[in-house]
Design a protein around this nucleic acid. Structure first.
Lengths: 126, 126
DNA sequence: TCCACACATAGATATCTGTCAAATTAGAGC
DNA sequence: GCTCTAATTTGACAGATATCTATGTGTGGA
């Protein structure tokens, strides 16, 4: 399951780590960058998966077992399982079996990567 | 076409404008928040639309006419038109006809909103 | 060994989505 | 008015996706 090593998209961030602007807005996304980012956005472009991601991230200890998640939805366990698989294949979450239960936790770097593409600066203008 | 006034999702940003963390990671997304965000992410969850957004944002003057965009893809005008419509209905871009041509520009606040949900802080840890 | 429980996979199905060709609308210039 | 060009709308269709039921796979306890 090493989905980790996607070539990080540089764009729009200088050496100091200070961002000039959202890469998306800085210079046109290449075809390959777009092809690589789209599946990530697609993975979170679903209300159930957005909530799953959020539930997992906010759960005590930064991880949650499937049973914790299933009860939060009006969906059957296989459906939840399906959505978790989609998130995992995108690299947004990871999992491990511990005894009877399977635990999931998020991969923050992937989330951050998406955030940076859209706009790396803090919402300071409010 | 007033798609503007979606109730901004507060979450995770204190009064000073400094963000404590990504709302998604701060506290569980409500069902309605998720239902509202998912279509936005869905709109950008396509390689063509990602590039369209980027091309528009980066184009001189911050706007581009459809003819500028169409030539950048191996797709027919109706297909480009379809994708632009999806982006516009999501509120991510707006448009105006000026003479023969139709110009599109992005709505930065919508992009920022998505960025904030995923992670409001700058990618400082690199 | 056997059963109960947690979760995943497989298969089926209805719906959504991306694409194109054809037809339509809207301006500009003659 | 007529015609050319720009862009959108419509209709059709193949492929993807979300969901369910039924079945399979691990794990722990009696």
């Amino acid at each position: 399951m090493s989905k980790q090593e996607l070539p990080i998209i540089d764009a729009g961030v200088d050496v100091a780590g200070a961002a000039c602007c959202a890469p998306l807005v800085c210079e046109p996304l290449s075809e390959s960058e777009a092809a690589e980012l789209a599946p990530l956005f697609k993975a979170i472009a679903d209300p159930v998966r957005l909530r799953l991601l959020s539930l997992i991230a906010c759960h005590e200890g930064g991880e949650a077992c499937v049973c914790d998640l299933t009860v939060a939805f009006d969906l059957t366990p296989p459906t939840i399982s399906h959505h978790l698989k989609v998130l995992k294949q995108a690299g947004l979450i990871d999992s491990e079996r511990r005894g009877t239960w399977v635990y999931y936790w998020i991969n923050p770097s992937m989330l951050e990567r998406l955030a940076v593409v859209l706009g790396p600066r803090v919402a300071a203008t409010t």
